[in-house]
Design a protein around this nucleic acid. Structure first.
Lengths: 205, 205
DNA sequence: TGTACATCAGTGAACGCGCGTTCACTGATGTAC
DNA sequence: TGTACATCAGTGAACGCGCGTTCACTGATGTAC
């Protein structure tokens, strides 16, 4: 989106993109409103035509992240249908794929310290995303005998936690990145063992 | 440690403690050298008698965290002996307990963006900590039939990831904290399902 | 026990910096006639 | 088609702030004699 003279044309989006790049490069605290404005080719004051301030800009970046995230999860879910198991596995993988492909969004969503309830739009987008994972878990849980069936919300939380942990520790040179295994392999095998533990996958695989 | 006149007495430790409190209260980016000095009852310049600068102070806080962490894991491991399974489960639980009891240390270690290789002392402490978890995994792995035995480093990574994910998402009012389950319950049940998947725990529990 | 002196932990003033935010303004755009 | 005018996106200067860091200093402590 080239700058065209005095009026930018699409400054709002340009600012969000600059913010995402900055967050990706320098982490959530390395992001500054002034630097984002500079990268968009504009004075810091211009930002206030489109956002209430620094926090509001991060919130919008996070919101867009949740929308993309929810779309990806939804698509992954549908790809696995009609198999409940395949759908569940696919949403787990989609989590890691999202973190890889949209690192700026990921950080804005999960590491910027922004509250999910900062704006109604942000809360709605976040709810839509977690709804997909819960739906997949719900459907999967019907394949477990009722008397030994854990609550669906519980194992959707387990998968979410394992996925998040793998992203934080084993991508981007984090604390555990000297591991000999790729994040993808770790998550794939981890989910595999977990689902075997639920009795949903044959003990040999 | 009361201030005693012109000379503080134990400023180095007081600064680390102030830093930990600040990090706990305001997050890693909310921590400032000046504020830590103020809380220790001292001028910002005094900090430079004991640390090279801001980063060095965080690194020391993280190092102390890894030492405590390694001690706790070691202790948990020994508590579970001679049962490999009990030891492994105990180290998983110790992870969450550590995050709860030492939130400042936890954040300094895993969320401050500090590199583990910043100082040799920090790297050594971190290695000792991960060594305990790997030892537990190694020992546990001997109870799995060799032909279907995954590498020990792999399931120590799984447990680490799940623990870390549970802490990040389900403690401290994070993204998933509206969950009806406590972090402790989630981790306990998650590890349970996982170990069942490894064939180390009877299918009914 | 008393005095001189070396040590060094902490002071306080100063620095340059980049930050988020405000304000009155200017100039490009698009619409009404 | 041409002109007058309203709109409003972006400017640029200014603000107060707290930051990390430096420096020459001061005064408390502890040791040698």
């Amino acid at each position: 989106m080239p700058k065209r003279g005095y009026h930018h044309g699409n400054l709002r989006e340009a600012l969000v993109e600059a913010a995402l790049t900055l967050i990706e490069e320098k982490g959530p605290s390395g992001f500054t409103l002034s630097e984002a404005a500079k990268r968009a080719g504009v004075t810091p004051a211009a930002v206030y035509r489109h956002f209430e301030g620094r926090e509001d800009l991060i919130a919008e970046a996070a919101r867009q992240g949740y929308e993309i995230f929810a779309d990806l999860m939804e698509y992954a879910y549908e790809t696995g249908q009609p198999s409940a198991l395949a759908s569940f596995e696919a949403t787990g993988r989609a989590y890691l794929a999202f973190a890889r492909r949209y690192p700026g969004h990921y950080v804005a969503m999960f590491e910027s310290g922004i509250s999910i309830n900062r704006t109604p739009e942000l809360a709605m987008a976040a709810n839509r995303a977690s709804g997909v994972l819960e739906k997949a878990a719900e459907q999967l849980s019907e394949h477990i005998p009722p008397e030994k069936r854990p609550p669906a919300a519980m194992f959707s939380a387990h998968i979410w936690a394992m996925s998040h942990g793998v992203v934080e520790l084993f991508t981007r040179g984090g604390a555990g990145s000297r591991s000999p295994f790729s994040a993808e392999d770790l998550l794939e095998s981890g989910i595999g063992v977990y689902l075997r533990g639920l009795g949903l996958v044959p003990p040999d695989g």
